[in-house]
């Protein structure tokens, strides 16, 4: 069995739900896919925070569509995780009890409209790097969900950059707003790729099993290389004094993010950890009677239909 699994990986074939797989592969995937799903769902909150205040009708429609997409992506990913023999109820319980993690970036607050631009441009930009890679991940349902997600996500980064461009080209207040958002979101975005390769405990297996195909540091470097020229083009400054082009490696040298802060946020001490999880738990609890009503109603219909026959 084991040999069959290894052989499939070696041939770059997908592992499918009914295939035999080692228990730790299954566990690793449940953890990663559900963490990804939770991130999409929690990720609706910081941006959702600005839906009622989006400054134009167009911006409002775009933002709603985008936040809705995040919800859809969470949904695709939950069903991918469910194919690994865990129910959505269990997955949500893990989130609500704090057992499961989600991306720390969403524990930062969205203070101004420019943050909505920064999230689309930087956070989605970083997420896409990861997600493009994950389209080739070894677990079939996860890979297929990622293909769909990448297709839909393609407008997200553009809308964020568009907001930032408009602000950078706008009034003095708008430009300051855009620079301030970049200053605040730059480091947390770099942290999104995870700890440095040398310190990442899960990376090695993930690469071996072809769940991940590139390392945290590789993806982080690619992100910096791609983003710096985009900032320069619109006259914004990356908040890193050590940022410098390195001709030899054909990439930028840049400072290490503050990993102490990263660990603090992961361990629940980010500015919005409590609010984010609290909002999800509240929505879940407030929705309970709705779900119970739907069950009761369906049951009544079934009984009525049976009585007819």
């Amino acid at each position: 069995m084991d040999a069959n699994f290894e052989a499939k990986l070696a041939r770059n074939e997908n592992i499918e739900p009914k295939d035999w797989m080692p228990d730790i592969y299954r566990k690793h995937l449940i953890r990663q896919v559900s963490q990804h799903a939770h991130s999409e769902i929690i990720g609706m909150l910081p941006e959702g925070n600005w839906i009622t205040r989006a400054p134009s009708l167009r911006a409002k429609m775009v933002l709603i569509a985008k936040v809705q997409d995040e919800g859809g992506h969470g949904l695709y990913l939950y069903t991918a995780a469910e194919s690994l023999n865990i129910s959505r109820e269990e997955l949500l319980e893990q989130l609500h009890t704090g057992k499961a993690k989600y991306s720390s970036i969403f524990n930062y607050p969205t203070l101004t409209w420019a943050d909505i631009g920064a999230i689309g441009w930087l956070v989605d930009g970083a997420a896409i790097m990861n997600q493009v890679m994950l389209q080739r991940t070894s677990y079939g349902p996860y890979a297929r969900a990622m293909v769909r997600i990448c297709k839909e996500e393609s407008f997200h980064q553009r809308q964020g950059y568009e907001i930032t461009c408009k602000l950078a080209a706008g009034t003095k207040e708008q430009k300051e707003m855009a620079q301030d958002a970049l200053n605040r979101f730059w480091w947390p975005t770099l942290m999104m790729f995870g700890p440095p390769d040398a310190a990442s405990s899960n990376s090695e297996n993930a690469i071996k099993w072809k769940i991940k195909r590139e390392s945290n540091d590789q993806l982080r470097q690619r992100f910096v290389n791609q983003t710096v020229p985009q900032a320069e083009l619109i006259g914004l400054t990356i908040p890193d004094k050590n940022l410098e082009w390195n001709e030899a490696k054909k990439g930028y040298d840049f400072s290490d993010p503050d990993w102490k802060e990263f660990n603090n946020v992961i361990h629940g001490n980010g500015p919005c950890n409590r609010e984010r999880l609290g909002a999800r738990v509240k929505a879940h609890e407030n929705g309970r009677w709705v779900r119970e009503a739907a069950i009761a109603y369906a049951e009544k219909r079934k009984q009525k239909a049976a009585a007819y026959q």
Binding site: Y76, T79, S87, E89, H284, R291, E292, A294, I295
Partner: peptide, 26 residues
């Protein structure tokens, strides 16, 4: 009560009339 998120369903979509229905998700 124990939480329920409803039953899992398979979704098939037909792109255009006349074409086959293709599985697109759950």
């Amino acid at each position: 009560n124990k939480d329920s998120q409803g039953a899992l369903w398979e979704v098939f979509v037909q792109k255009k009339p006349g074409q086959p229905y293709v599985h697109c998700g759950n």
